[in-house]
Simulated scan of single mutants.
Amino acid sequence: PLDSTSLDSPVPPLEDIAAQSARRELPLEGLRIGVVGELSGEGYQEGVLAAFDAAVERMRELGAQIVEVSCPSLDYALAAYYLIMPAEVSSNLARFDGMRYGIRVEPKEGPVTAETVMAATRGAGFGDEVKRRIILGTHVLSSGYYDAYYGSAQKVRTLVQRDFDAAFGEVDAIVSPTSPVTAFPLGSKLDDPLAMYLLDVTTIPANLAGIPGISLPCGLAGDGLPVGLQVLAPAHADDVMYRIAGAVEAGLGEPLASSCPAATWEERA
């Protein structure tokens, strides 16, 4: 109740909505579901697109109308996010200095001053990835770079929000793959953080726009690894998102009328 960042509005019975949808009590008939052209194509694993297309076809068979929509600014969303997010990380984590919040670590050698305590605390308390984001965020917020980087990224964020607003004027929800590829081996991209960040291309637009999103498994790619389906809805329309997710999750356990032989989800997995 005292959290200024929480919405003071009633929450729909989301669990009940998902369950009712799975039982076909809330069918997908009458819903328009958008497929974003900018969130597919080059760079997406073939097996990911195949599983996604099958899930979209299943939604069509369950009664939804599938509409192709365009959000041109999504091509720039990833770059904008990785300027805005590190800047916020740098600003928000500045309080954890060993004086006011978090742990306190004193230097093993030399004088104990505010500067040395702060350095020792932040060196011990933050991992490599957090430090990388703090350094990047501090740079983009520094004098001479603020307008060029952080300010420009905020303008892109506004464009992303406007694209989603326009798309949701045509459809009730949007679907996309959750990731362009299946899971990579643990630790394989630690030496190439940019490659790791690029895999966020489909999920960070929702964060920039401030809209709800959910991911659920929608099949297996050729490498035997699971593929995720992402459902995005307008702000405050979480009930629509859960309605679609519940129907799709239940529907994927049934045979596709058009192409797939009868098989349960467990058998396919």
Rank of each mutant, 00 (worst) to 15 (best):
P180N: 01
V181I: 09
R32L: 11
Q161S: 13
G187Y: 03
G219T: 07
C218D: 07
I103W: 09
R268T: 11
M85S: 14
A262K: 13
S176Q: 10
T182M: 09
Y101A: 10
Q20A: 15
S6D: 14
Y76W: 12
L199D: 12
V56T: 11
G151Q: 00
V181E: 15
V130G: 07
D97S: 08
G123N: 15
D128V: 10
V201S: 13
G213E: 07
A124K: 13
A206R: 03
P255H: 07
P261V: 07
M118C: 14
G125R: 04
V175D: 00
E46L: 13
R122F: 02
A87C: 08
L229G: 06
A19F: 08
P177W: 01
A55N: 10
I33W: 06
L256R: 11
S152V: 02
F126E: 06
S40F: 00
M99I: 15
L2F: 14
V105F: 10
L83D: 02
R132S: 06
D172T: 05
F184Y: 13
G253T: 00
A120V: 06
E254L: 15
E115A: 15
M99C: 03
F52G: 05
T116D: 06
S90Y: 03
G63C: 11
V36E: 01
G251I: 05
T178W: 02
T264Q: 08
E68Q: 15
P107H: 07
L83G: 02
A114V: 15
A87Y: 08
V171Y: 05
S91R: 10
G98N: 07
E88T: 06
P27L: 12
S143Y: 03
Y101I: 08
V240P: 02
A237E: 14
D128W: 01
G169E: 01
G34N: 11
P107E: 08
G30F: 09
R100M: 03
T138H: 05
R100E: 08
A173G: 02
I214D: 04
L31P: 06
A195D: 13
V48I: 10
Q65V: 13
R100V: 09
A167K: 03
D147C: 03
Y101W: 02
A124S: 14
S142H: 13
L28C: 10
F184V: 07
L74E: 12
R60G: 14
G43S: 13
P13M: 10
V105L: 09
I214T: 10
V160S: 03
D200E: 02
V117K: 11
E88D: 12
P27H: 11
A80E: 07
F126W: 01
G228A: 09
E25V: 01
I244L: 04
L199V: 00
A124Q: 10
P13S: 13
A167P: 10
R95A: 12
R104A: 05
S21C: 12
A209Y: 03
L198F: 06
L252R: 11
S73N: 11
Y149W: 11
P27K: 11
T5D: 06
A94S: 15
P217E: 03
V35G: 05
E57L: 14
C218T: 08
Q45P: 01
M118T: 14
L2C: 05
